[in-house]
Simulated assay, not measured.
Amino acid sequence: MNFQIKPIGYIESPFKKLSDIPKQSIYGKDKRAVINILDEYVLGIRDIKEGAYIILLFYFNKSKGYKLLQVPRDSNDFKGVFSTRSPFRPNSIGMSIVKVISIKNKNLIEIEGVDMLNKTPVIDIKPYIPELNPKDEEL
């Protein structure tokens, strides 16, 4: 089965090189970027609020190839790719939870907590709803 995913927008990030990116969004919590939403999708961001957190799904467009077993940055042992947050994945999909700082010109979402390269394609945005996620005591 083949399917196509089209970007809904692109990240305008301060990170121009792979080596500059924090390894997770939590380590870039003071870093800001802008999601530039394409005109045809602007209506879809209407109810996103400043100060809210969103789940950002994006395409690791600079990742080349993958291995099913990888050694994560914080380990010396091989792990299966699906038990890691590596950008080197079969479908190259990334996910970060970021904070919405502002929305400007109806299509620019300023975010904080950035771990994406400049010009990264955004494939979806979902609301982060804490009560729909496991609590610490459930983990």
Rank of each mutant, 00 (worst) to 15 (best):
K119D: 15
N107T: 05
L68M: 15
I93N: 02
D77P: 01
K31P: 07
V100G: 01
D115S: 09
E131M: 05
N133Y: 12
I8P: 01
V122E: 04
V34S: 07
L68Y: 14
I35K: 09
Y53K: 15
K62S: 12
L69W: 14
K29N: 15
I45P: 13
F3H: 08
K99F: 09
N36I: 11
I125G: 09
K17L: 14
N36C: 09
L43A: 14
L38W: 03
Q24Y: 11
Y53C: 13
D74V: 06
S25V: 07
G113L: 08
D124A: 13
P7S: 08
P22E: 06
V81H: 13
P121K: 04
L108G: 03
K104M: 00
G94E: 03
I55A: 11
I26E: 14
Y128R: 00
G51V: 12
V100R: 00
K29C: 13
V71K: 14
S13V: 12
Y53H: 15
I5Q: 05
G94K: 01
K17E: 15
E12K: 13
Q24C: 07
E40T: 10
G9P: 03
I35L: 15
N133H: 12
P72D: 06
N105H: 05
S19V: 08
V71W: 03
D39V: 08
K64L: 12
P87S: 00
I11T: 02
F3A: 00
S92H: 14
F88K: 12
Y59S: 07
K135E: 15
N118G: 01
N91C: 06
K126H: 07
